[in-house]
Structures are given as C-alpha cells and as structure tokens.
Write a protein that binds this DNA or RNA. Structure first.
Lengths: 179, 179, 179, 179
DNA sequence: CATGAATGAGTTTTCATTCAT
DNA sequence: AATGAATGAAAACTCATTCAT
C-alpha cells in the first residue's frame, strides 16, 4: 500500500501498473491479488486509510476547542498541517476522491470532512460569532482556499513560507466568516 | 475534438480510447492520426483551444473596466459564466492542466489566467483599493473559492441558485481583498 | 475461426489459448479481438456456424422424402455423413453444446435438430408407421445411438467399416420405432 | 475429494481452482498438495473412486442373473440407478473419461464397463437369446441410449417419470438385441 | 483523404505450485 | 500436519499506433 500510494500520487493511478507496484514493493504481481481483489480495490483501501487518518486529525482538532471561531482556525491549521506532514495521503485524497469507480457511493455515505465544517459554521452563526452566510457555500470557499493555497506552496508558485501562508489564509477565512 | 472533449471529461483521458473517439465522431481511427500526431497531441490541442477561449473571455472582461475592484468582480463573474456556458471546456481545463505529459512546459510559458489576476491585484494595492496582501496568495484563494463553488453547484452539493452563488462569492472575495 | 475450431476440438476450449489460435492463424492476438468480443464470443460464433451447417444438412434431407420411415432413415444417414465429412464441426457441436457460458439460452431458443426428429416421429405414429412411443424419449435413443456409434468408429473401438455401422444403426433404429 | 467432485461437475475441471476447492473443504491450498501430487492427480483419484463404485455396481448386478437377457436388463437398470443415486459420480465419469491428461492409458487398461456388456452379449448370441449382431456396436447403441435418456431426464427435456424412462429404454434395448 | 485491419507491447488478472512458518 | 503467503508463468484482453488499400 505504501508503494502504491507513492506511485499513484507521483504518476497517477491509471499510469501506475500493478507490475510497477510489485517491483517497488519487492514482491510478485500475483501476491498483490492475494491481498486486494483488484487494482481498484487496492486504490480504494488506500483511500480508506488516508481518509481515516484525515478524519481522525480533524475530529481530534475539533474536540480541543468549543468556540466556533477557534474551531475553524484550528481546523484550517490542521488541514495545512496534515497536507504537509502527510503530503502523499493528502494529495491522494485530492486525486482520487471524485473517481466513482474507486470511491463507490456506499463509501461516501459516511459523514465527510465538510460536514464537520458545516456544523461548526452553523453553531457560529447561531451564537453570533459569524455573519449570516450559507454554511455549505462557506465550506466550499474555505476548502477551495486551503486546497489551492496548498497547491501553490507545493508547486512553489508562491515563495511565501508555509507558516505565513497558513496564518494569512486563516486571517482571510475569518474575514469571510465574520462581520 | 468535440467528441474527444466530451469523452475525456466524462470518463477521463486515460479511460478514453482512440477507438471510442473515432466511433463517437463517425470516423476511422487512422483518420485521427492524420490530424493529430498522437493521443497526447490531441489532448493538447483541445486544451489549447479551451484555454484560448477562457483567456479570451478573461481578457475581454478586463478591458471593460479600469477600477481594480470592478475588474476583479467582473473577472469572477466571467469565470463563473464560462464555467456554466462552457462546462466541458472548463472541466477539461481543470482535469488536464497539471498533467505534464500533455501540458508541456513550453505551453505554460505563456502568461496564465492567474497572471491577469496578479496584475490587477497589484494595481489595486498600489491604488489603495485593496489591503496589502500577497497577490499570489490572494489569487490562490480566489481561484480556489471560485473553482470549489462551481463544483459544489455542479454536483448539487448546494441547492443555492447559480446567481446567488456568484454574487455571494464576489462579496466574499471583496471581504478578503479590501480592508 | 478455422484454426480455433481445429484447436478447440483437439485440445478443448479451455486448454486453447488465444495466443495459440493467433499463432496458428498467423495473426496477432489483438487482431482476434477486433473480430470477436471475447474468447467465449469466438467459441459461440464457431458454434453458430457449425450448427447452421448441421441444420441445413438435416433440413435438406427431410425435404427429399415424405414417408416418416424414409425420413428417419435419411436423417440418420445424414448425421453419420455429416459426422464423417465435417468431423471437426460435428465434434465441436458435441463438445460445446452444453456449455452455458458459450451457448446462451437465447441461442438455444431456435428449433433444435431434435425438434425435426420429434415432428417426424409424431407424424409416423399418427400415420401408423411407428408404434406408439414417447417421441422425445425416442429421439434421446436415436441421438444417443448415433452419437455413440460415431465415437466408437472414430476412436476405432469397433473395426466395422463406416457404411456397415450406418446401415446396422438404421436397422436398429427401425426396430425401436416400428412394431 | 467430495468438494472437488462437486465443483468439477458444477463448473468443469478447468474452471475450478485449487483455491476454490480448499475454501469449499475448509482447508488450506497447501494441504491439498500433501494428499495429491497435482490437480490432475486429484482429478484422477476422484475418477478412480467413481469408476470403482460404478464398476462394483455393475459387477454386483451381473452376478445375480445368469440369463443374458436378464443380465442386460439388470445392467441397464443398474446404470440408470447409479446415474440417479450417484449423480455427481456419474456425471463426473462422463465429463472426465476422455481427457487423456487425467485418464492416462494405464488406467484405461483395466477392463471397462463396456467389456462387461460385450461378454454378456456374446454369450447371448451364442445361446440364441440375441440375434446375430456386432456386440461392440450393440454396446455403443445401449450405452448411447442410456446416457442420452439420462441427460434428457436430468435436463428435464422429457417430463416422463424416471421409472417409465427406465422400463421403456429396457424394452427398446431388447427390441434391438432380440430377433 | 479516409478506412479499418493488423500489430505487438503492455495491462490486469488467474492459478497451480512451492515453501517458510 | 496444516497454513496461507509468495511465486512466476501464462492467460485474457486493451489500445496507441501503423499501414496497405
């Protein structure tokens, strides 16, 4: 799974052959099929693993604060943190999450990270922390901002240091949410 | 190229065979190779075409205003408009723009859409329209917000009507840029 | 199809690889898939071809006589004739006709050779040519006798010349059918 | 062996993997190789077992009568009986008996069921019970009739009850053998 | 110019068999 | 004796690309 994750992110899933994975993992092609039903199944298991880690990080984060504003800030920080510490896992989630052959509908039936955000934003609006905004749309903005910022950092399109990007993005998110 | 665009967006480039394209276009496989050197070349030509349309729309927009604030607003409106009117083209750009076998470096050497934004934001900061913010980072935010909002609308994750999403997103962008 | 037929009969369908067929036919493996969807499809097309020939021979035969007794005799003679002149085709029909992955139900919905027999035997019983016997069962007997006799001749289990086997089998069939 | 027999008859030998057998038998793949040299060896042992049972039933039957006519009748009855009581074993014999990789020549050197028939028919001809007919050919007819009738019953091509089929087939056999 | 058959290398997948535990 | 992971050869099938017509 480690080797596959590495190759999937580097070259894309379609361009990664089972042979390449087996060679990278110092095992035989056939052996991969003892552990995974198919290439799609392997890709799915890796996703499940990555998603689990990501979700755990987010849930852990939410618990630490009670104030919606702090929660959102912490959440954004966590996502950036995850995207740097678990770069492969984060990229893989971005790559694979909309491929329906791999991420079947039953898998996506679980509550998604965006649902965590929505709940907090709703709380924040009720408590008067945030202005009245469509929470779903707000999540779209936040997720988009974070994701794109991460890509700009990763591809060195901006030369700003990581921490500055994080802090500024958090600031920008707050400008959007607060009155 | 029309057929290929349709299939590339629907099933992905790798999962689309030359055969499928030729059948969809009511022509023979060999004939495609008369017009394009390879499948990658076909994908590239389609990208060039889509990118040209997109760029033209953006450039057209910028000319109409001189005030940076109005320009940014118009730009966001244009991107949303393009994403709805030219959905296939917009999706295709998103799908293909980071695939290096297809979008070779010489292609990306031309000024990109984001450069249009950067220039305007720089102007805006100089003129005191916008707060002092890293323009590259700001573009990352704006592009991310717009792109993600478009996806949320397209996949019906939000039920807000298109125009509301556009206006609210423009408002949010302004909150980020202005003091 | 000729090569495949030869190899299927000689070694069995499962033990015949597409590669072996392509080599025997002096073509490339991939080319076989241009003409047939799958190995099963190839096997099916060959069956359809063989069955068509067999059916044509039987139908031709039935037309030549009107007397049920003569018709049955001619039919048996035809089957033996077909089994010798079109040995591969006949063997292939025997090999493949009960493999459901290949001979799908819709194929078998057409009237089968046994139906030709049943009709004639029914006629014969009505006209008083044959004793009162269950026609379906009678066909089972006749088909079984002919098929097994053919195998005994082919595998040289009996040393009787072909024509003697035919005539004696016809005689035996008549003993079963007539009073 | 039980599991293998079941799967071999149901799906065919080639389409049955050692893995499927081991799973069906609640044991490990490797363990099968502790008891059988190879898959072919397993198939052979099963055949030997089935053939032994079949032969025993036939030999038992022959002993009970001395009159050739009664012996043939009893034999046919026994085959039908075996085919119903030991359906898997009977089908397996039909499936495998002509596969030379499995049923090697040394195995077939033992006297075969058909030899039992031949001897009795020869006796019957000498004693004047049967008309003068080639005994080998007669066996071909009888075996073919019985086998095909069994198939017609098993596949429900005829709706006649089993006992009627048996009695009528015996009657038909007698018509062939007697003057 | 257009066609589509042909090529052949590459892909996913299967499976009998081996072997360390 | 039993297990089941590992092997590797071979199978079915795909497809970008070529080329004779």
């Amino acid at each position: 799974m480690d080797t596959a994750l590495k190759l999937f992110v580097k070259n894309g899933i379609d361009a990664t052959s089972i042979r390449a994975i087996s060679e990278g993992a110092n095992t035989a092609e056939g052996n991969i099929y003892r552990h995974f039903e198919s290439k799609d199944d392997l890709a799915r298991e890796i996703f499940l693993d990555c998603a689990k880690q990501f979700r755990a990080a987010l849930e852990e984060t939410v618990k630490l604060d009670t104030d919606p504003e702090d929660q959102i800030k912490a959440l954004v920080r966590t996502i950036f943190g995850f995207s740097m510490n678990k770069q492969l896992e984060f990229c893989y989630i971005l790559i694979v999450h909309h491929r329906e052959e791999i991420i079947t509908k039953d898998i996506l039936s679980k509550p998604l990270p965006k649902d965590v955000f929505i709940e907090i934003i709703n709380n924040g609006i009720e408590n008067g922390n945030f202005r009245s905004v469509d929470p779903v749309l707000a999540v779209a903005w936040i997720v988009g901002m974070v994701q794109r910022s991460f890509i700009f950092v990763q591809r060195k399109i901006t030369s700003l240091p990581q921490e500055v990007v994080v802090e500024q993005t958090i600031d920008a998110v707050m400008r959007i949410l607060k009155n």
